[in-house]
Design a protein around this nucleic acid. Structure first.
Lengths: 410, 410
DNA sequence: AATCATTTGAAAGAGAGGAACACAAACTCC
DNA sequence: GGAGTTTGTGTTCCTCTCTTTCAAATGATT
């Protein structure tokens, strides 16, 4: 409510905003009838009609026959986002894999691909080259003719949104690496490329297409070796002043605890990362995903040691989450990554800590649930990020009206 | 950038938004020249001219002679918010005092008053009656003739914004008290009354009129017996799903630490509240503000015990702040309340902990500074809150144009 | 005193959405 | 199975609001 709605609106702005509202609704909700659009935007039929016409001309949407839903009255024709009218390229640099996808307007994944990344540190140039290879493959297979409107890149590290400068990426062994520069070179495209943190993009995907649909205030926790977070505040991803927000893994929860790879002690991820789980389960902490899967299986078959390890992880999860809940008062907490599968085993102790440590008023509003999109969430989020300019100003992607109009009159 | 700008715009909406933009600019920046307004809103001179005319007719702003600034060209006339054109009543229920103020458009405090509150728990009815008394006093003295457009109430507790239901207010000994109902009865006004947490309102005031002007991402920490927080995210106060956000005092920072009055252990306020300071300074923890002042004086004159007490408080302040910084990536951290005076003595250890525990990328952007508005900050914030409806839709407070127009044509 | 840069004022113009009307298509009821 | 009801479409005209344009005003500059 209190905000910075400062700038003035002009006729041109109005049309842009209205086109944007329609395209956004279609992208987020899929096909909608015209009357549904009238209801959702608050515009009149006449206005919707004119705007839809423009979008159909611009090939961003298609208008199909009415869908009969059994209600009386003349059926309203169905407006669909055209997945081939505008596509984006989504790329992901994850801990141990690279991903690429071509996603069409409306969110349809036209093609996707994922390859394993050899463990250990990787050179930026190699990664960029691999991504470019993936990109041309998915683009060629699925949608070579479709108009590309943007590229979104999710990176497992702290990255600057504007130019893709990676400040730190411990999992890749990177510090101050110019990923953006390399990628711009090898991709050779002139559409905008936007970068963001993997956890943030996963949260965005869950918000738009997954378990957090419709919620305004959400905390998403991604657990693996490290712990990442994606925060949704007031319907928007929390970015902070430079886009470094949501780094929940290094919240101090146990100030005199174990040393963290960040140099501090007792960060949240020292207690809820997979190393801590393995240690508590009596295994070498540096065991990889296979070891974690083993502990998961043991817990599933009732092993007391494994269950206790998860219970303790759940306790610390709850401690950290209580802080986040008190600070952010969210509606929903999503547990993703390794925690998606571990959820049943951490649940009890987690909730118990929340009961104890979260303020009652906030506590009673909270639901803690696992994520639903699985491993591709960050990729889908990167696609959403890449669509953003189109959704904000669809007119820029329609045929340049003013130019032809002036030409006609001249 | 990514958000929910969904609803359509209509001519009526546009005018409202433009009037709003102008009034908001004037309220936040004080008098501006017409050409300055043109630059800030992006509208044309003609549009500005018409809108200003309407606002002058509605007596929300006045237009004065040009201010000659020595630049060539015809001087631009100055547009001023009229402090008497619209006023709000701001009320505050603080830990040990009640406050009231009448504030005019543009932020001028026309009159204010504060009375001490006897320690211990107070009945809601008594507080409401006292506030009503204060209100009629300040209203009568300062601005009896001015049009009241809203009432804002800052409460030291968890309060629901819409109806003033106080969920908990430990400092007042309240649980589930219907403050809003009582206050509506005794104030006997028909303008909207809005409620909010004191810490949030203090942060809003610092954002608009104090040390955080112009910043978009801010964390404000209010330290006294308890610790409260006001968070600004992306230029807006963080509210959360029910307005309970920002309760930083109960972030777990030392899970096996001292019991907190909330029932948990090792909440942030058990380490940085005044009780902890007094304990560390070798005094009884329940000593009041006088005892804290005494420790402050001792620290000022170099007492090692007092300085060590502050240093330890600073260490824990830094630990908790590091978590908030990692999560929120703010530009600015403001220390208010008791911490404003204590700032010089906590600074060193606080910054050291940040160096150790905050992520470098976020750390290097941060500035930690004391607040500047002092004790009246929440009161000023409540005034801003009360102004919000007017700033969002100034047209509603102008003379009802449509009605008279229809009358004329009929 | 002439020139220049900038702003004001007023009237005409253009863009965009709103309102009202006739018509169409489906469901419901008798 | 036909009349009535409901909901939605297409079209035209209207209104609202901002922009454009041109002449006049004002103060600094030279």
């Amino acid at each position: 409510m209190i905000g910075r709605e400062d700038l003035g609106h002009r006729s041109e702005t109005v049309r842009r905003a209205n086109l944007s509202a329609i395209v956004r609704q279609l992208h987020l909700n899929g096909a909608l009838s015209r009357s549904e659009l009238v209801a959702r935007t608050g515009l009149t039929r006449s206005a919707i009609r004119a705007l839809i016409g423009e979008l159909v001309d611009g090939e961003l949407v298609t208008e199909g026959p009415a869908a009969l839903d059994g209600s009386p009255g003349r059926p309203s024709s169905l407006v669909c986002p055209d997945p081939h009218g505008a596509v984006v390229l989504a790329l992901e640099i994850a801990v141990d894999s690279l991903g690429a996808a071509v996603v069409g307007l409306g969110g349809e994944v036209l093609d996707s691909l994922r390859i394993d990344l050899p463990p250990g540190r990787s050179r930026v140039d190699d990664i960029a080259a691999s991504l470019a290879g993936l990109a041309s493959t998915v683009r060629g297979r699925g949608a070579a003719e479709d108009e590309l409107v943007g590229v979104g890149v999710a990176v497992v590290g702290v990255v600057r949104r504007s130019d893709g400068m990676v400040s730190t990426a411990p999992n890749l062994g990177w510090r101050d690496e110019p990923l953006g520069d390399r990628l711009t070179e090898v991709l050779g495209t002139d559409v905008p490329i936007t970068y963001a943190n993997e956890a943030d993009m996963g949260a965005l995907a869950e918000l738009r297409r997954g378990a957090a649909r419709g919620a305004d205030d959400v905390v998403v926790i991604w657990g693996s070796v490290g712990v990442g977070g994606g925060l949704i505040v007031d319907g928007r991803p929390l970015r902070g002043v430079a886009g470094y927000g949501g780094e929940v893994g290094h919240i101090p929860v146990n100030p005199d605890g174990l040393p963290c790879r960040c140099g501090s002690n007792g960060c949240w991820e020292t207690e809820v990362g997979t190393s801590a789980l393995l240690r508590r389960a009596g295994r070498p902490p540096e065991g990889g995903p296979e070891a974690v899967d083993a502990v998961l299986r043991e817990a599933g078959s009732g092993s007391p040691v494994a269950l206790a390890a998860f219970a303790e992880t759940g306790r610390w999860l709850g401690i950290g989450l209580a802080g986040l809940i008190n600070v952010l008062n969210p509606r929903l907490v999503l547990l993703g990554g390794r925690l998606e599968a571990g959820y049943p085993f951490v649940r009890a102790t987690l909730e118990a800590e929340l009961d104890r440590r979260a303020l009652p008023a906030s506590r009673q509003l909270i639901r803690v649930v696992p994520t639903t999109l699985g491993i591709d969430a960050p990729l889908l989020g990167a696609a959403e990020l890449a669509f953003e300019p189109l959704l904000t100003d669809p007119a820029a992607w329609l045929r340049p009206r003013t130019a032809t109009a002036e030409l006609a009159t001249a």
